[in-house]
Design a protein around this nucleic acid. Structure first.
Lengths: 137, 137
DNA sequence: TCTGAACTTTAGTGACTTCGAATATTTGGA
DNA sequence: TCCAAATATTCGAAGTCACTAAAGTTCAGA
């Protein structure tokens, strides 16, 4: 392949808190955002953070994921600018940067919910039509 | 790794038009949806389809992607139940299954837009504070 | 200053994706 | 029936991603 060809291109701070956006076509940036959301653990992290700030340790405990894994997923979210952190003593608090991220999760849920109920309805319909026997009369 | 460990588990039709959902935790299904959206070409396909039905050939031409690639991405979207198709002669028309998908794209755009303007504002601020010389007196 | 706690980063290794090319399939018409 | 057009599917190479394990950092308190 030759995916994600990033020419020596534009400048970018190592990670100044600003999202990793630089000058790529919009659809590439959008895809990057979605891709970052495309992992179960990161979805759960965002759901938890939607309720409020949490430390890495808190997340770690709730997710049942070890320190390393938690940090790595947080780093991925951070690099894309989805979450941001603040240090307090030895612990680090994370929070969602843009509340609309929760909206994204909510819409996804709606989509999946209705898809699910549709296939459910389909199943019921099939059961109605092909009951093999035991059909009311 | 050991990603996506799917035990011989639940039944699933080869691809009965119903989204690939089976019995997985919600966050896994959600992640799957986002992951499918996590590719530039698929984002563009969805943007085009948001405007209305299109044949594979139409998409192919607008995306500048060859037949094979277009089909593969469409297949990915189809498997997840994001789009559905209808055949008319030798060509196949695709359409978005749930209009809320467009909403997903719109929210993503908003998030990215404001993130971008934030970092823009930050840059301006820096330019204000560190003009080296030429600062208005 | 030394320690421990809380995190982060790095490195190695499979698993999964994507791509391009080649090979099917399906359908309408000659 | 045979062909051509429009799509799909398959396959192998090249990449990317995520997981585990093993170091690093940073900070507070003894």
């Amino acid at each position: 392949m030759a995916r994600r060809d990033e020419p020596p291109a534009t400048t970018a701070s190592p990670d100044a808190g600003a999202p990793h956006v630089r000058s790529d076509p919009v659809y590439v940036v959008k895809a990057r955002l979605f891709r970052v959301l495309g992992h179960p653990v990161r979805i759960r992290i965002l759901e938890l953070l939607s309720e409020g700030e949490r430390t890495v340790g808190d997340l770690q405990a709730e997710l049942q994921v070890d320190s390393s894994g938690t940090s790595q997923h947080l780093a991925t979210l951070r690099q894309q600018g989805v979450v941001e952190s603040r240090r307090a003593g030895t612990s680090v608090y994370y929070r969602v940067r843009d509340p609309r991220v929760s909206q994204l999760l909510a819409v996804a849920k709606q989509i999946l919910t209705s898809a699910l109920s549709e296939s459910h309805a389909l199943l019921d319909e099939l059961a109605e039509e092909t009951p093999a026997r035991s059909r009311r009369r």
